[in-house]
Amino acid sequence: MSVARIQMAHGSGGKVSHDLVKNIIWPAFANDILGEMHDGAQFVIGGARLAFSTDSYVVKPLFFPGGDIGKLAVCGTVNDVAMNGAVPLYLSVGFVIEEGFSIEDLKRILASMQEAAAEAGVYIVTGDTKVVEKGAVDGIFINTAGIGKIIDGITINGKNAKPGQDIILNGYLGDHALAVMSERHGLELPQSVKSDCAPLGDLVASLLAAVPSIAVLRDPTRGGLATTLNEIALQSEVGIIIEEKDIPVSLAVQAACDILGFDPLYLANEGKLLVFVDKEYTPQVLKIMKAHKYGREARVIGTVSHAPCGQVGLRTGIGGIRLLDMLMGDQLPRIC
């Protein structure tokens, strides 16, 4: 990396973000647990297998259709922990609040957090609040860290994808990203487009109880479906092919993407998860997902193959295959 300054692209979750973490941040802390490169850390304390994860939330606007920064802060970390095959238990929260921030807004956010925590079955047990001068942060930033107990007998790891497995997605893509950015881009979205922000711990637990051999679980957040699939393809050293006709994107989300020049496969989701599992278990996984409130639109979107190693391909509606690369920097609205 030859740039001397952090750019917005470094926060986008794409390749540039990855490079920052891989080349500058990880080496500073190098250790075996970090080296696993999973969504969260997995370790054993006194015989108990635990998963531990953290995330910071800086979303603007603070309140958007389908959620707010508080709900996001709880669900995001709950989901990160759950993706380790763990039951999320406790969260910490850190607030950095700008001088002048409305206490009413703060109360709204806190209520949102508690509602999400209650649904997720987690407790917010410790925290910290800092206030900074006007201008030092934009409104409010929230960090949450979560800890959970890995379900007995479960080993979820990004390296476990194997040729022949099906890839299953629980629903529509891009709604969260659009709900958050619509105001900024002067788009008025139909009521149906709301952030999909949701706690997935319960769905994960149901799936693992029925199909303990699920190989990989991951939530396609920043960087979108494409980036997440690339990460897994690289970690597991497999190839992945997904079918364009099977990828669920609503008309409105597709339209907004067409207007701005975005690709829905690279948009962030906050209530979606990917399951990699041996084909024989696919019907069971689908059954459980579709019966769950957060999985009604579940479907198989692709399969894992031997080759090409580390690459993700998209079979298009007309039958061609194109390389589906990782997000490079951030997606910008374009006219070309």
Partner: peptide
């Protein structure tokens, strides 16, 4: 240089229109 989408005019006020593109609305 050609990114353009079709939309239906659902409101018109002089030189400003509101268009509907598969449910998404924008002023043009």
């Amino acid at each position: 240089m050609c990114l353009a989408v079709p939309g239906k005019i659902i409101d018109k006020q002089d030189m400003l229109a509101t268009v509907d593109i598969s449910g998404v609305q924008r002023k043009v």
